[in-house]
Simulated assay, not measured.
Amino acid sequence: MRDEATFHDHDAAAWSPLNSHDWYAARNATTALRDALLRAGLEKDFPYLRADLNAFGHGLVELGRVSPVTAERLAELLRLALAAGLRRLEESGDGTAEHHAGKD
């Protein structure tokens, strides 16, 4: 009888996000994004940034609402990063750079 109780100890009501791989994945991704935003000087522009889980236990990164100016700054950073990546591909002589260049 005692063994039977330990078999059923996994109770959904006792579930914790701390036991979830998805929680840690969301937290690690949030930390990486936070660090990048700090380097870009955007740390105050994403006040709602946080790791979360939905009702199904899937990890999510909540970015929250941002101002139009912040969205434009983020878009420009992404454009610059993509351009730098394409330049690196071209400099390395990788033939995929021409393929990606046509997708702008």
Results as ranks from 00 to 15, higher is better:
K103W: 09
P68D: 01
A97E: 00
D35E: 14
H10Y: 12
G57Q: 03
N54T: 08
D35L: 06
R88A: 15
G59T: 07
E43R: 08
L82V: 11
S16N: 13
G64M: 02
E62I: 15
L49C: 03
P47M: 00
A13V: 11
D45Q: 13
N28C: 05
D22T: 11
D22M: 03
A71L: 08
V61C: 01
L74H: 02
Y24N: 08
L49W: 08
M1A: 12
H21Q: 12
G59K: 03
A13E: 14
R79A: 07
P68F: 00
F56I: 04
A32P: 08
L18K: 11
R79L: 03
W15R: 14
A14F: 13
L80V: 07
A84C: 00
F7N: 10
D11T: 09
K103Y: 10
A14K: 12
N54L: 00
L78M: 07
N28V: 08
G93W: 04
A71W: 04
D22S: 15
R73L: 07
N28T: 14
A26E: 01
F7S: 13
G41I: 01
D94Q: 03
S16V: 07
D11E: 09
L38Y: 15
R50N: 09
R79N: 05
R39Q: 13
A97L: 00
V69Q: 12
S67F: 01
G57P: 14
A55H: 13
G93T: 12
G57F: 08
S20L: 08
E43M: 01
K103F: 11
D35M: 03
A32L: 08
R73T: 06
A26M: 00
E91N: 09
